[in-house]
Each structure stands twice: as C-alpha cells, then as structure tokens.
C-alpha cells in the first residue's frame, strides 16, 4: 500500500514569509554556531582573549608612539584612537557575521557548495550561516573599550548629527568590509590560488585604517575614496566628528559606501552562474 506522506510544505505562501523567515533561519544558524563553539569552551575563550590581545597590542603601539609624537598631520592621540576604534568595530562586526565567506574557498574546494545548491534557500544566506567567527568578540570588546576611551580623551561636543554620523559610519563600514569578504568569496569561483593578496584589502585596511587615511598622502586618499571607498566611512566623517569640516553632506557620506556591495553582489551572482555551468 502506498500512502503519500503529508506534504503541506508547498501550500505555505512563499512571498509573505521570505524576509522574516530568512531572518529566522539566520538566527537559527547563529544559535547552532554558538552551540558548536561552546563545545570547546576553553578554546573559545582563549582564542577570544587572543583576538583581544592582537588588537590591544596595536593599541599599545599607538599609545607609545604618541608619547614621542604629539600628533600626526594634525591628528592627536585621542583622535587617532577614535578613528582606529571605529574601523576596528566595523571590521570585527563584519568579521563575526560575514566571515563565512572566509571559508568559502574551502567550501568550493571540498564541494560542499553543491550541498548549498540543493537546498531551497538563498545561497548567500546559507554560506553566511555556515560559519560565524564568534571568537572575534574579543576584538569587538577591545574596540569598544578603545572607542569609549577615545571619546573620554577627546573633547568632542556631541550633537545629534555627530551621533548619527557614528552610527552611519559603523553601518557603512560593516557593509564595506562585508563587501570585501564577499568579493573574496566570489573570486573563489574563478581561482583558488594566490587569493592571499586579498589580505591587503581586509587585514591591511584594518591595520592601516588606524590613522586617518589622509596621512598616507593624496593618492592613497583618492584610491580609498573612489576605488575601495574606505575613506567614506573613515576619513571624511571623522573630519565632521572632529569639527574640521561642516556640512550635512559628511553625515550621509558613509551610507554611500553601501553601494560597494552592489558590484560585489553582481560578481557573486556571476560566479554562481559560472559555477552551475561548469560544475567545478
């Protein structure tokens, strides 16, 4: 006797649930990642401590350097701290939630991406969910501490505009770094070798984003304004925060960097298309 197993799956309205449902699934992925990490508690906390220390040592570097120099190109110690802590916050947020892309080369190499494709959900969502680098909480905490320390040290008069600017900076910067991780993942569809050079755009941007980008010279500023728009989330809004520039324009500038996600996403789509036509 054949009895068809109940199958109500298809009767659910598909459109209505998509966004909320995606968010649900995303949090489910997050929780399973947390539970996996908690299987190795001591390792988790030691690694988080390690992450904390890595950034803390960079902070110490800045501290000692500024005992020797009173400013760099007009930016004082507390201003540099503020700049670095915002970049670091953006980076660690992006790293926690978008580092699934970091392991994407492994996913392509081992063929686990096939598994993603035989499931009825958005591929990006599944790849993102496959790995959350939660130990980066150490770096995030360090960045937060430095952020508040920087605020206390500086004498910024906080206006609503400036608070909004900081929020936009964090949002735009997190999107920008996520975009770079996405770019890295997309490149994996085409080659798996020599992608280490992408470290320049990720770790390099984090390390050298500690100083306002103008100190590296005009050309570097142009590059980071128009090619990979780091300056939009770092240098220009920082000038506004420090009262070196005026204009509402600077408040909204960080949001422009969200546009960087568009070409990255297109490249990703193109990569998926190539993948399904070559199967490798």
């Amino acid at each position: 006797m054949r009895q068809n197993r109940q199958n109500q799956t298809r009767n659910l309205p598909c459109q209505k649930r998509s966004i909320r449902h995606s968010f649900c699934l995303y949090t489910h992925y997050l929780s399973i990642n947390i539970r996996s990490a908690m299987e190795y508690k001591s390792s988790f906390f030691l690694t988080a401590l390690g992450q904390f220390l890595v950034s803390f040592h960079v902070f110490l570097g800045i501290l000692f350097l500024f005992q020797r120099f009173s400013n760099v190109k007009g930016f004082t110690y507390s201003e540099v701290l503020l700049c670095y802590s915002i970049v670091l916050l953006e980076f660690s947020l992006a790293e926690m939630f978008a580092r699934g892309f970091d392991q994407f080369s492994e996913m392509v190499r081992s063929g686990s991406f096939d598994r993603v494709l035989v499931r009825p959900r958005n591929e990006l969502l599944q790849v993102l969910g496959s790995k959350f680098e939660l130990t980066r909480i150490g770096r995030l905490l360090q960045a937060l501490a430095m952020f508040f320390y920087g605020i206390l040290q500086s004498h910024i008069l906080w206006t609503p505009g400036k608070i909004i600017t900081v929020i936009f900076m964090l949002f735009g910067g997190t999107c920008l770094f996520s975009g770079i991780f996405l770019l890295y993942a997309s490149l994996c569809f085409f080659t798996l070798e020599g992608l280490e050079f992408m470290n320049i755009a990720t770790d390099g941007a984090r390390e050298y984003g500690k100083y306002p980008l103008s100190i590296y010279g005009k050309r570097m500023l142009q590059f980071t304004t128009f090619v990979i728009p780091y300056a939009l989330v770092q240098y220009y809004p920082l000038l506004y925060l420090l009262d070196k520039r005026n204009g509402v324009f600077y408040v909204f500038l960080p949001l422009l960097s969200v546009l960087f996600l568009a070409p990255c996403y297109l490249l990703w789509r193109f990569g998926v298309k190539c993948y399904t036509s070559s199967g490798s």
Binding site: S42, S43, L46, G50, L53
Partner: peptide, 12 residues
Amino acid sequence: ISPRGLQMIFVS
C-alpha cells in the same frame, strides 16, 4: 587542552 588559543596569545 586548547593549544590554538594559547598559541594566539603567545604569538601576538
């Protein structure tokens, strides 16, 4: 029991 975390601390 967790050599990787320890390694990270020493390395940094």
